[in-house]
Structures are given as structure tokens and as C-alpha cells.
Design a protein around this nucleic acid. Sequence first.
DNA 1: CGAGGCCTTGACCGCGGTCAATGCCCGTGG
DNA 2: CCACGGGCATTGACCGCGGTCAAGGCCTCG
Lengths: 193, 193
Amino acid sequence: MTFDPVHACVLAFQGLYPVDQAGSTALEQLGRVQAMVRGETIQPAGQPCRTLYFVAEGSVRIHSMPDGHDVTERIVLAGGFAARGESLFDQSTVDKGIECLEDGVLVALPTSALFAAFEAHRPLERAFYKMVERDYVRQIKRLERIQTLSPAERYARLLDEEPELLQHVPLKHLASYLGITPESLSRIRARRT
Amino acid sequence: MTFDPVHACVLAFQGLYPVDQAGSTALEQLGRVQAMVRGETIQPAGQPCRTLYFVAEGSVRIHSMPDGHDVTERIVLAGGFAARGESLFDQSTVDKGIECLEDGVLVALPTSALFAAFEAHRPLERAFYKMVERDYVRQIKRLERIQTLSPAERYARLLDEEPELLQHVPLKHLASYLGITPESLSRIRARRT
DNA sequence: CGAGGCCTTGACCGCGGTCAATGCCCGTGG
DNA sequence: CCACGGGCATTGACCGCGGTCAAGGCCTCG
């Protein structure tokens, strides 16, 4: 085999916290590999979030549709994890969907089984919460930027801190990710001679 | 005794996850009670966050000062916890301070000792991560609002979802909390006949 | 070769930012 | 007890950015 998605997922966990052998194999047995094609809806809006996804190849975005406008809330490139945090822990329903941006493959981890595995494998639980921590900090920084910076400055920051996104994501999604319209983003780009 | 701040803090933990007797007493021994007066700086900017605060009475805000402008990032009323999440886990320095908004009393929990107690008291660790979870979800929702709503709509939401803030926090801080200037907030308020 | 999606450009408008002045309430000190 | 001062909220005038609506060009895919 050339590339094992599940193994990559286990490695990603181990990169967060040293997971022991038993925890790793438990995790490995949970993972379900699943292919995705561009435009496909991985998880539709209106359902509780019962699955944590590891993006082995390709990319996805999480988005909502308040009053008919498509707003992308976050973008996950290969190597990252995707889930709708508001719903992850309490299984509340959430009006957000997960959509595939580029063909690729996912590893799906059912949260019920994952959380159950925490009882027997504390390092696994620790790794998971490291993931939440990391994401929590990212949310704080993103909020800080959107709260204090102008649209033009936010775009400049994006170029500076996550330029890879430009290679993978159409501008209209980056626009709503920045909290502005596609037209504004276009003008901002034109303005920076 | 009429009111024990440390005990209130322990109860707050137990409200998040059932902490056993041993964990509760361990927590109780960590807490340091400390009074605060309005305007006082609890934690100055530029330091790593080594303390988790429980606000027993009064209220505080977390704020930063990018290019000289005071931006309040979050407001914690009595019964809540306050810490600068970006720095909590990795002890990185952070340009944010904690300031007292109303006279009151805090319970200070040194993070090093708290994290150390997790090794022996798993329920305590669980309760703490429930706290992080809850806060994580709040960040997501706040980001969502600021990303998709206009300033006027954000103020309407604030009135709707956390009207208590108006009783405790001066408008200039609410303005920066909403990501707008005090003048704009004033006009928005005037506009809603 | 045609159709549709995406990015761009244009014109117009209104909201919110900025700077400045006024009024109000409070605590402080004479 | 009153006078003063400072911080906070408000109001006004002005301007520019970003939102909205509409049209045009380009690429990709069927």
C-alpha cells in the first residue's frame, strides 16, 4: 500500500499527545475511510454532529446558510480535522453543513465510539482535548482579527498567515470567510496594486 | 460564614462534571481568595497566563490594546471563569490584560497546580475540559455573529441574549466588544426609537 | 459549441469611522 | 455644601469603504 489514511489519522493524534499502542489500535479500529468528490455534501445541515472527520487528502469547508447566503465558517486542508464544534459535545442540531472543496479522502470517526474509547484510553482522551485546545485558541485569534481589523487588513493577514488557502479555495468562499462580499474582496485585491 | 468564595468555585466545577470528594478537596486547597476594586488590573498584558480565575462577586473583562485602542474581548460576570485562553495551555505571552469592572472577589487557581491535580483526579480534569468545551462553543457562536451580522444586528442580539451586560458594563466597552466605535453604538441606540 | 459558474468592474447609496464639541453625572477637594 | 474636573455618552458634520444591484468577460465542463 502506498498511503494509509487511517494510519495518517493515528499519526495526527500522536502528534498532539503521545498515544500508547493500545489507544492507537483502538483508534485505528474506529476509523472508516471514505472518498469524496468536489461539491459533495459530506454532512448536511440540520443534524447533530456525530462524526469527527480527519481530512487525509483534499479539503473541505464548514458553512451555514443564514437567510439564503452561503457563509463559510472554516476551511480544513489535508491533515486537519473537521467537525461542527457547537454540536460535537451535546449532540444538538446545527444548521451547518460540511462540503467537499477538492476531491480527496476522509477518515470518519463516530463520536459515540470515540468518546467511549476514552474511558479505557486516557491518552486518547488527552490527544482529543489537545485538538480542542488548539482549535479553541484558533477561534480566539480569528475572532480577535475579525473584531479589530478592517476587511482589507483581514485579507492582508490571510495572505500572510494562511496563503495556502488561495491555492485551494475559490475567492467567493474566502470572501464570506473574511466576513465580506465577493465584490468587496475583488476590489480589495484590485486596490493592492 | 455567610458566603465562601472557594466553595462557590467548587460548586461551579461540580456543575460542569460530577467531581468526587477527593477532587473537590484538592481543588479547594488550590483556591486563593482575593478582593478586587473597580478599575484595578488583575493581570497585566505581556505575561503568560498562569492563573485561572473564578469570579465569585463583581465582574471583569479581558481586553487588549492594539495600536492604542482598548478592545474588550470578553466580559465575565459573577459565577463565571476568566482566563486568557491563548496562553492558558502553552504559557505563551499574550498582550491582553484582565481588568476589574465592579468591586468583588476572585478565586485564583494557579494553573500549574491545577494541571498537576489532574493526574490524580480525573473527574477534575473532565470538569475543566467541560469548561473549555463550553467556552469553545461560545467562541464559535460569537464569531458566527460577528462574521455575518451588521453592527446594528449585533447590538440587537446582545440585548436579546445577554441583556445583563448592560447593567454591569459601560457602553464604551460594549461597543468594542461588538467590534464598533462608541459613537456608532450611540447612534444605533438612538435609531431604535 | 453552448451554458453556467466565477471573478471582475461599474454606479449608487447608506452605514459606520473619524474628529470635534457639548452635556451630563460623578467623585473630589476647597 | 458648592465648585471644579474628568470620564462617559451623545450629537453633529464629513468622508470613504463596503454593500447592493447589474452587467460584462472568461474559463470549464457538458
